[in-house]
């Protein structure tokens, strides 16, 4: 029962946060991906950095259970699948989480995204044996690895660096990049000022 209450509280907080940062709005996804406004990119980088510093800092202080980490395996299909997701994400303006959240905010196009997603996931369920037999799901570089070895995590490190310290350093790097990124990387269209979000 506690688990279900946590699912409701954390899930609702996640959905509300996605909506408030503009991630449920495809316009902001497209402006990030076509490099005309990096506001959402800065938000995401700061979020990853903040999460990383808090998690690894908490682990080092003994306040966060290292056993809660869950590292996914690395294999060739991760890159191929990433390419596919990226193309569909840019075309539709939705990813799995934001698509469901956007439908809940009243966006009708998001319902079509979810329908397509259910069909795409079903197509993968049927074609899974092919990817498996082609060897594209076989672990590479150790499979479930972190960049450094995180103490007591049970996951191997890609390098011999201390994983928790590295996690904090990388977290700070993500935060630094969030601050360093300009508002846009693409030349502004002539004759009108680019729309800027309020600071």
């Amino acid at each position: 029962m506690t688990t279900i209450i946590l699912a409701i509280v954390i899930g609702a907080a996640f959905g509300a946060a996605l909506d408030r940062i503009g991630a449920t709005n495809p316009n902001w996804i497209w402006r990030m991906l076509n490099l005309s406004n990096l506001h959402l990119m800065k938000t995401i980088l700061l979020a990853i950095g903040t999460g990383s510093v808090l998690m690894f800092g908490g682990q080092m202080l003994g306040l966060v259970d290292v056993g809660h980490m869950s590292v996914k395996a690395a294999y060739a299909g991760v890159f191929i699948g990433g390419l596919m997701l990226g193309a569909g994400w840019a075309a539709s303006g939705f990813c799995p989480g934001t698509g469901v959240a956007a439908a809940a905010t009243g966006r009708k196009d998001a319902l079509f995204f979810i329908a397509g997603g259910l069909l795409g996931a079903a197509a993968y369920m049927l074609s899974y044996p092919w990817w498996k037999s082609a060897g594209l799901l076989d672990d590479m570089a150790g499979g479930k690895v972190t960049l450094g070895a995180v103490p007591d995590s049970g996951y191997a490190g890609l390098t011999g660096l201390p994983g928790d310290v590295l996690g904090i350093v990388l977290g700070l790097a993500f935060i630094a990049v969030a601050f360093a990124l300009p508002e846009r990387l693409r030349r502004a269209p002539q004759g009108r000022a680019a729309e800027m979000p309020a600071e």
């Binding site: 699948g81 596919m84 193309a87 539709s92 698509g99 329908a115 397509g116 997603g117 069909l119 993968y124």
Partner: peptide, 9 residues
């Protein structure tokens, strides 16, 4: 897009 995104994911 939904089809490709979830297949890829």
């Amino acid at each position: 897009g939904g089809f490709v995104v979830l297949y890829g994911a």
